[in-house]
Structure formats: structure tokens, C-alpha cells
Amino acid sequence: MLTKRIIPCLDIKDGRTVKGVRFENIRDAGDPVELAKWYAAQGADELVFLDITATNEERKTFAELVRDIARHIDIPFTVGGGISAVADVELLLQAGADKVSINSAAIKNPKLVHDLASRFGSQCVTVAIDTKYTEATGWKVYTRAGTVETEYNTVDWAKKVVELGAGEILLTSMNNDGTKAGFALDITKAVSEAVSVPVIASGGAGNMQHFVDAFNKAHADAALAASLFHFRELEIPDLKRFLKAQDVDVRI
């Protein structure tokens, strides 16, 4: 049985792990390679590394760190942040990343998704979608680290990037991110049911039941969290035992 994936996300700035609360108030939570090894040993199914300043500051991504991570860990990982061209992706995959995650660049140039999928295969192209709900607009896609509203309705955009060749969707609800009040179940479910590729729920995890709900109610294929894991408010072995007891298939 294919298991649901638990994915710690490590936000990286200047080679260090940080976590923004609602994308602000960045705190330092350690060395990425050490943290990655620790998570692999704890039973994390995958890791995501996001170079959080890359998009805003137009700086090149972190191929050297990626190489260091690939050298030391034996589970898959995705890297993202500031990727805007096929050449960026080639560099990161050659360094040992399994997947890349693109966000703002896909909005700016949707054809990039197609170009990456045909060059490297859909299996390594994750499109990250930052979404925000307001009563006036519904769930809209935001870009540039969540600072700029786009014209796209979230479900439509998800369907479009999958048509273009995305192999996975990483869906972050900005309303929920940092709140620890649970994942955005409605939009996660809507996206998961609208597309044929796996969907990672992100933003809002605060306790173990939130993960059960993401899988059982919102039909997510994977769930991602950051500070909850980094500050050891929730340990992955405990979480997986809990999920198993609730009839969620997980790798233990």
C-alpha cells in the first residue's frame, strides 16, 4: 500500500534553517544538513528545502548546500526558491535534488512548467501554490512569497499546471500558515479532487489530528510542516503511530 507522506519543510536563508511565522518574524532553527539527517532517522518520508529569500532578492539558489544534503541523506528531497530557468533546475538536479519546486516563476512564465517536465520528466516538477481566501475573491493564488495577488483561482491554476506537466502540487494556505489551527481542508480537498497528481497539504499544522484530517477529510497525499517539527513540539515517530492507529497508512 502506498503510504501517506510526512514532510518536514526547512526554510533556508544564508545556509541556515529558519521559519517565518506568517512569512515574517524569522527565527533560526539550526543547521540544514544536521536537521535533515535527524529527520531522516526519525522517519520523515521526504524533505523540502525552500530558499526563502531567493525570489525576493533574485539570488541564485543553493546548489552547494543541496550537494551537501544529497551526500548525507538517503531519503528523497525537493528544493525550491528562486528557480526561474531550466538551467537552474539542471544545476539542482545534478547536485542531487530529487524534485524541484517552482512557484512565482510558473506564474510569470507557465511554459516553464512544460519545459521542465519535457526536459527532466514530470516526476521531478512540483509546483508550489500559495493560496489565500477572502470573502470577496474566494481562494486566489498569490505570488512573490505571498505578497502579490494574481488573477488565478486556485483550483483552475492547479489544473492548468498539471496539464502543463507538473507532477505534484505543494499547496500552502496563507490564511492557515503559522496559525497551528489546522490545514485548510476545503481548498486542499478541492485541489486534490481536481487534479490527477499527488497534493501536499501545507500551512497550519498544530497537532496530530490535523494530519489525520488532511489525509482522511481533505484527501491529501502528503502533509508538510516546519516549526512544529523544528522546535520538537511534535515528534514524527509519535505522529506516525497516531496516524496508524487512526487507519492512515504510513511507513513505520
Binding site: L2, R5, D45, Q123, P198, D221
Partner: peptide
């Protein structure tokens, strides 16, 4: 009807 790619840990 399952998600494709088949992605993740399986037995």
C-alpha cells in the same frame, strides 16, 4: 483512479 505519478513509499 489513483494519483499518477505513483509517488512515495510503497511495500
Amino acid at each position: 483512479d489513483l494519483k499518477v505519478p505513483h509517488m512515495g513509499w510503497n511495500q
